[in-house]
Structures are given as structure tokens and as C-alpha cells.
Design a protein around this nucleic acid. Structure first.
Lengths: 190, 190
DNA sequence: CCCAAAAATTAAGGTATCTTAAGAAATTTG
DNA sequence: CAAATTTCTTAAGATACCTTAATTTTTGGG
């Protein structure tokens, strides 16, 4: 597990073994069962989670009672509710494991302590945040430019694993398509 | 102008006067005339711009030749094309001044040099990037949750200045509404 | 202050996508 | 392995929003 973290960190910033050891020792481990919540609505998101293995979804309940999925995350992704975690405000979203999911996690306090101790870690997170922002801007682009059919085709091609691991109605939710209409689109494509 | 920067930086991280002076001395100044481009499509975005005074829009041309505005920025905002600036890839978007606009700007190289010299600056940008990400996530939420009419109402309330300073068809573009339909919505509201 | 260009409006017809409701298929669980 | 639950599909009717095209209004440069 330490190896996985080391490899991941090393993709962006070089750390010495000692630094990795020190940082690693501050990470806590937890396993969430399928359907278990990492975060519930109306509570402050206390942690930033690094997924060692598993699938997590982020979603909220809209005014008509429907679940709207805003994000999926798998192995080697960080997941949290950014706004809640950063601003320490109650989250409007849930984080839920869709499979048995192993995570390493950090509290805000720990993270800030580590930032001050290891400027390299702050650099790592500056870079990770930039990448998240870029990914998010791209996602917006896709939603603004593409029709439902193309969004699905694009998603199916970009992350084929998800099509296997996640129920179709959840993918529909993420892609902002009703499950009925997605079903129709798939029928017309075949 | 240095005062404006100092005040802005100080909102997030405390810098000494000497630090501000040093950093400030690395910033370059430029005035863009109305309609002038800070960045054109297919070129690498070399700079990150801090707007001292003015309005800038970010947009791209879609496959049917229409301008699609993705962002507005005014006084005390940073603007760049994130993906192009960070990854040094050709931009798909334009940055254009909508009024005479005064900016202070930095190249990627200068910024990285300063990051290494002043970890506090890296912290500042880590925080700014987090805020940008949060703002972006919120924007996505708005677009996914709201109908055209509500998006306009929301925008008009959130940034009333823009309604005055920016032509309606540009606001329509930003809000992903055709100018014709926005016009209809406004008529039915009054 | 006039005229050209830019911006905003109006209206008619069209379409992508949603809603509702029901049934079929697949998966999970006792 | 049967029952219960979850997921997926089908189809008809509804609607938010778009497209096109023409007209009106506003703006800004000479």
C-alpha cells in the first residue's frame, strides 16, 4: 500500500523515502463495505480520501427526490466533497462506496500540518488541484458541447471499466440522461 | 497597483512587505484595448493574468461557427487558459478584453521560479486553485440543476454588474441559451 | 447628428429529451 | 431455487428550448 502511494506521489513530485514514510504514517486506513457512506448530506466532510481499491460515487438528491451523480472515483483517485472539506461547511452531497472500497485518508488539520512541514506536499496538492480543475473544465465542455448520445459514447470509450462496474442507471444519472432515454439511445445504436 | 496586489494576496496568505516587493517586481504590466486578444486559439497560453481593471471573456468557436463563452473575469480575478497554460498545449479558446483592461501577468517559468523561492506563493496558488475548482463545481451544479430561466435569474442576481457591462447576447452565450430564447424569457418575466 | 453596424426582439415550426406508467429481465437474498 | 428487489426496456404524450428569418432598436464612429 505504501508502494502504491509512493508511486502515485512520485508521478508529480519527487519525495525521499524518509519523507514518504513520515507522510504515510499520518494516513489512516479504512475499508468501506458496498453501499456504505464515506460522507452523508448535511455533515461537514472531514476527510480527503485516497482510494487504494474500489469505486465511490458522489451524488445529491434533487428537489424531486432523484439521485444525481456528480462524480465517480476509482483506484488512485482522491475523493472528497471539495467545498465542504475546504470551507468546513455542511455537504449537500453524499459519498458512497459502490463496491468494497479500501481508502487511505487525511483530515484537514493533518493535511495542513503536513503542508507546513513538507512544502513538497503542498506542491503535490497544488498540482493535483490544478489537474482536478482541468478535468472539471473538460467535463463542463463535454456537457455543453455534446448531445446525450455523444456523451454516452464518449464516456463508454473513455472509461470502459465503468460500464462494467457501475449500473446503467447510475451512468445515466452521471451523464444527465434519464435511464429511459439512455435505454432508447442504446437500442437505436445497436 | 502594488497596493491592490498586496491586499489581494493578503486575503489568503500573509506576506511581508519585502516579499510582496520581490514578487511584485516579477509581474509585468500591460494594457489591452477593447476587443484586443490576450490569447488566440491554437497558440499556447504563455501567461496567467491578474486583472487590475477591466473585463475579459474566454470563448471558443463551436463546430457551427458560433462563439461559446465559457468565462468572464473582472477586477481582481486571475484569468488564463488553465489547460493550455499548465500543460503548455495549444489553446482551443480565445481570451479577449471586452473593455480597456489593465493586467499584471506572469509566465509559467517565472511563476515556477517564484514557487520555489516563496513557498507561501505556492500556498497562495494552491488556495486560489482550490477556490477556482469550487467555483467551477458550483457552476456545473447550476447548469445541471437549473432551467434557462433560473440560470439567467441566478446570474442576474449574483453579478448584476455584468448585466450592465456585457451585451445580452454574450450573457446568453455564457448561460448556454440562444439570444432569441433569452429575449423571450425576459419578455415573459416582465 | 446621421448612418452603418451591432444588438435585441418577435414569431412559427421543429426536435431532443423528459414524463409517466407498465411490464420484462436480471440480480440478490433468504 | 423461489421470492423479492433492483435494474432495464418500451411506448405514448408533453415540453423546454432551438432554428430560421425577418424586423426593430440601440450603439458608436465620422
Amino acid at each position: 500500500m505504501k508502494e502504491q502511494i509512493k508511486k502515485y506521489f512520485g508521478r508529480y513530485v519527487e519525495f525521499s523515502d524518509t519523507e514518504i514514510d513520515k507522510i504515510y504514517s499520518e494516513l489512516k486506513l479504512r475499508v468501506f463495505q458496498k453501499k456504505e457512506f464515506l460522507l452523508e448530506e448535511n455533515t461537514v466532510c472531514k476527510h480527503n480520501y485516497f482510494i487504494i481499491k474500489g469505486v465511490v460515487r458522489s451524488y445529491y438528491i434533487d428537489e424531486r427526490g432523484n439521485e444525481k451523480i456528480t462524480q465517480f472515483a476509482i483506484d488512485n483517485w482522491w475523493i472528497t466533497n471539495m467545498e465542504s472539506f475546504i470551507k468546513e461547511t455542511p455537504s449537500t452531497q453524499y459519498l458512497q462506496a459502490l463496491e468494497e472500497t479500501t481508502v487511505l485518508y487525511l483530515s484537514k488539520k493533518t493535511l495542513e500540518k503536513l503542508y507546513s512541514k513538507y512544502p513538497k506536499l503542498e506542491r503535490l496538492f497544488r498540482i493535483i488541484t490544478e489537474n482536478m480543475l482541468i478535468a472539471n473544465l473538460r467535463k463542463s465542455d463535454i456537457f455543453l458541447q455534446m448531445r446525450s448520445k455523444e456523451r454516452y459514447a464518449n464516456f463508454a470509450e473513455a472509461v470502459p471499466d465503468f460500464i462494467q462496474r457501475v449500473p446503467q442507471y447510475m451512468i445515466a444519472s452521471y451523464l444527465e440522461i434519464t435511464p429511459e432515454y439512455l435505454s432508447e439511445l442504446r437500442r437505436n445504436t445497436k
